[in-house]
Design a protein around this nucleic acid. Structure first.
Lengths: 217, 217
DNA sequence: GGCATAATTCAACACTTGTAGAGTTCAACG
DNA sequence: CGTTGAACTCTACAAGTGTTGAATTATGCC
């Protein structure tokens, strides 16, 4: 929203991105249903019809706004590579994820995805596939787990369980005991649990092979 | 919804409970915003105006429908008492909670609360206070943690973190690797993590006392 | 029987929602 | 200058929302 008024050339449209940014903010705060086109337009200082002009439908706007500005697997790989020794790996993962989630560029997207996934089937599919396809595999790989093994997906899923619970209680529910504590402290507390899921001696479910053999996308 | 048609005496109104039950189902499936009075009325086989006649406003209906049919602290205490030996206590807690959440009487209420809390501030307050006031203390007490100690609340909160993450991925997101596994298997995998939070040697946050001294209600 | 009373429905209001198309403004280009 | 074309706004529609008050139906009590 640098300059107002019509008359820009193609490619100059900062307004388009301003709308997307406003949309991210609204989706993050109210979820898919709660974020109205009118509120998004107001937040962007723009007529509601312009939102529709650029993005067509609300679903399309959501999909566009939730497109990540990073490639998760690359960021995860880069951020976690230094501690390849696997010692303190769990804490490092917690620290990395929390820092990422609370960073300026990603907070809105992640919160929007999380808030929307709980009530919108479209968003739920996005988040589920995103986790299954981009996160679980990367975590398993970076952690050095054997691929093509049912155990890897199960272990990574348990990590997701703990990490999403952390995000839910800290960012959404804001439980004081979780929200008022530093990332470092949470990493120290939760890290070992995550590490146990990845490398510990778990009693593995018998028929895990069926789950591991799902189509990747 | 035993008998249809008007003309019942006071106290006979099974329709009132039928509406509440339909409301629970809708709130569980769509969250607070997504559950419409009209849909609730339709699910109960009743005119929308009757919903308003009985409960006044949508908020009141939500509050009434989400009132638990049990006293959580009692159920938790009773269910967890047998394993007071603290051996396998974590697994027992996971098993108890998951079984409770997936039981007929509570599934809708819990899911509705969870789904709504993520998008409705009113519901978020309900769930947060419910967890903080009824759950954390009970878990800490049953686990034999010293009361009036900042550590107790922090430990219980970490447990909540893991348990809610489990609920989110299994019941709401339905991540295959978590949803397609038996409660027993999850208890065996997650139990030890929970146990570590309760009795393990955690690096405690320094200023935890401030959090522990919040007003209870 | 008639009467009070509760249960239930009808019809409608006032508002918000996503969406659509026609119209307006303005910079760039010839 | 006039034309073009994109950025942008106005107005509006059709559907859905919570909510309301009057009307209707049936029951138990006298």
């Amino acid at each position: 929203m640098t300059r107002r008024g019509p008359g820009r050339r193609a490619g100059d449209s900062g307004t388009r991105e301003a709308i997307a940014e406003a949309a991210r903010g609204q989706f993050a705060e109210h979820g898919y249903r709660g974020a109205t086109i009118r509120a998004i337009a107001a937040a962007a200082g723009v007529d509601p019809a312009l939102v529709h002009h650029y993005y067509g439908t609300k679903e399309a706007l959501f999909a566009a706004a939730m497109r990540l500005p990073i490639v998760p697997s690359e960021v995860l790989t880069a951020a976690l590579a230094p501690s390849a020794g696997l010692d303190g790996f769990g804490a490092h993962l917690v620290r990395t994820a929390l820092t990422l989630w609370e960073s300026d560029g990603l907070r809105e997207t992640f919160l929007g995805l999380l808030r929307s996934a709980v009530t919108s089937e479209q968003a739920a599919v996005m988040l589920r596939e995103f986790i299954a396809d981009s996160i679980l595999g990367t975590v398993a790989r970076v952690a050095g787990l054997p691929a093509a093994d049912g155990q890897a997906e199960y272990r990574a899923a348990m990590v997701a369980t703990q990490m999403l619970g952390l995000a839910l209680t800290r960012l959404v529910l804001r439980l004081p005991a979780v929200a008022d504590v530093s990332i470092e402290e949470l990493a120290a507390t939760v890290g070992p649990s995550v590490e146990r899921y990845l490398t510990g001696d778990l009693a593995m479910p018998a028929r895990q092979a069926r789950i591991a053999s799902r189509r990747p996308g």
